[in-house]
Design a binder for these strands. Structure first.
Lengths: 224, 224
DNA sequence: CCGATTATGCGATCTTGTTCGCGTTGCCCC
DNA sequence: GGGGCAACGCGAACAAGATCGCATAATCGG
């Protein structure tokens, strides 16, 4: 349904991938540089956080000037989005690995968020900076993050759809609307966590509570 | 329940309000300056948007250097948060003005979001930048925005609580969790709107759909 | 009136993400 | 093997938010 994020080390850089000249010694060097940049950024983000990491520092660790980074990346945030994409992929894989399609829908949803959270917990910045990126609507990276989000929502919708065919859901529930609601509620909880309002376990139980609420509904049974 | 945002033109600036010397010609001058800054910022934000507005421009229009602004404000975003606080206050007032406490809870919630959206639509940046502010957990302004959000959530909880006593809600619904869910779902929809993924009316109907969903619940009636 | 205190303003400066123009280098084609 | 073409890297420079030290002025205690 959605385009897979390109995690292969193809040149995802500004210029087109130059299909005319498929490979090249220069391109090889470029790939190595990109790899060094990615590693340096990844390490520094974990050491000092996103905002504490300067492009000059990344460049220094990657053995190049700060401006050269822009040969390979369009913005600082793109470096983090790469990580986000990988982490999401990993989360999906882990989830699917032990996913029981016959389990109650609500349980599957909860387990998905738990799996995702296990990974997210290691890099608290990720969620927050991704969210921040979406607040720059003109930037390309915003659309990239939104696409990633949409993909997660798609997976949630898939889970829900599985429940629908098993009559596990209310009959007239719009699966996509529901998936979006689940996603945003979880994001909100994680934002509180990132701001130190709740602990990590608090965040988890908030998410669980919200999922339960969404399944049960706010309204009184059968009335209005 | 929550501390009211201080909208009175008391010096909310970095230094303490200097209670020892309650007023002063200088303080008077400062108040006027703050007012000019606020007006200039407000106008420029509407003309060019938040990111398109430079502090030097604000300073120029307010008749002072850019650095002087920091005597009255701790960051650029704080200028916008002031607006957000006012706008929320206005939204609450408008809502309460025509609020029918006997109306069905769901209808009240929907009307609240509509009222809020009427105002928000005039300054599309507001929601987004406020959200962005919360992605800088170290900044004071983040906590300020979170407090404002918490206040909105509180109002929603109040509405829900009203419904609970009338048996309008499911018996075991945690009012605060539900309010939070409503809030975050609406924020998510507005984020899509700000990113041009949906039109304003689309955003409104998305919110309505989400509210309906939250009231009805995702799960099948009475089962699991 | 005097010194101390303090709110305000200013310009220089810093920081950091980002852009720009230039030079270098490996590759292809003739 | 020479010219052309990109990819790459670099240092200078820019933009804009923020900080700093200094200057000014208003007030107060004495």
């Amino acid at each position: 349904m959605f385009a897979l994020p390109q995690t292969t080390p193809q040149p995802p850089s500004p210029g087109r991938p130059s299909v005319l000249r498929p490979d090249d010694g220069r391109l090889e060097r470029g790939r190595r540089s990109r790899e060094r940049i990615r590693e340096a950024a990844r390490a520094l983000f974990r050491e000092r956080g996103f905002d504490g990491t300067t492009l000059r520092a990344i460049g220094a660790r990657a053995g190049m000037g700060a401006s050269s980074i822009y040969r390979h990346v369009r913005s600082k945030e793109e470096l983090l989005v790469q990580e986000l994409a990988e982490l999401q992929e990993e989360a999906w894989n882990r989830f699917r690995l032990h996913d029981d399609r016959e389990a109650p829908t609500r349980a599957r949803v909860r387990r998905f968020f738990q799996t995702q959270h296990d990974l997210l917990a290691e890099v608290p910045d990720l969620t927050v900076i991704a969210l921040r990126a979406t607040t720059y609507p003109h930037a390309r990276v915003a659309r990239r993050v939104l696409a990633l989000n949409e993909r997660t929502i798609g997976l949630l919708a898939e889970i829900l759809q599985g429940g629908r065919v098993r009559r596990d859901l209310g009959g007239d529930v719009d699966v996509l609307v529901a998936a979006r609601a689940l996603f945003h509620v979880a994001s909100g909880a994680r934002l509180s966590w990132a701001n130190g309002l709740v602990t990590e376990v608090g965040c988890r139980s908030d998410i669980d509570a919200s999922v339960d609420l969404l399944f049960r509904g706010i309204g009184a049974d059968e009335t209005r």
